[in-house]
């Protein structure tokens, strides 16, 4: 994974999957690009418009992605051009789903990031820099299985490549 530079869009704690993509949209279709305009809409109706302009990092507090197993959650974020999600902690199923679908997730102290900050992330190097503030932010490394899956482009790509699990 190469380095990613983008702006931070910051939200709070306990953001659940119903906020990321509401059930009322989720069930209607399997067209993620069409659904992505509703990403995060009950929290921030402009999320998709703002982030899809130049791409961005979704920055949150603790327990990001709590709630349902819907994989539509990381998928609509990817389709809104969310480059990575940075949070103090993640809910378990969302964390797996993000890696499986190729959305980088980073555990770090997001109090060190304000809305609008420019960030520079290099996951392979385990490096996160807040360019606006000129500070380095320590990141918790991904478990090695997940780093491998993310590197290979997600779980489906891993399967295609190896013809099954090879971890």
């Amino acid at each position: 994974m190469s380095a990613i530079q983008a702006r931070a869009f910051k939200y709070g704690d306990d953001i659940n999957t119903d906020y990321i993509i509401s059930g009322k949209h989720k069930f209607k279709s399997a067209d993620m690009a069409a659904m992505a305009v509703h990403a995060m809409e009950d929290l921030d109706p402009d999320y998709h418009a703002k982030v899809s302009r130049e791409g961005g990092f979704l920055v949150a507090g603790k327990n990001f992605g709590m709630g349902s197993s819907r994989e539509q959650a990381p998928l609509v974020l990817i389709h809104s051009d969310t480059r990575a999600v940075l949070a103090k902690s993640f809910a378990r199923i969302f964390y797996r789903n993000a890696i499986n679908t190729g959305l980088p997730v980073v555990e770090c102290d997001t109090d060190l990031i304000d809305d609008g900050d420019e960030l520079d992330l290099d996951l392979a190097a385990g490096y996160l820099k807040n360019v606006t503030k000129g500070t380095d932010i320590p990141v918790k490394p991904l478990p090695s299985v997940m780093a491998q899956l993310l590197e290979e482009g997600g779980l489906a790509a891993h399967f295609r490549k190896h013809g099954g699990f090879n971890i």
Partner: peptide, 20 residues
Amino acid sequence: TGVGSTDGAAAMAAGKLWFK
């Protein structure tokens, strides 16, 4: 335990899955 669709698909295909 609950998993996402891609993990579910892997389990349907391979009959196994990785767990922590």
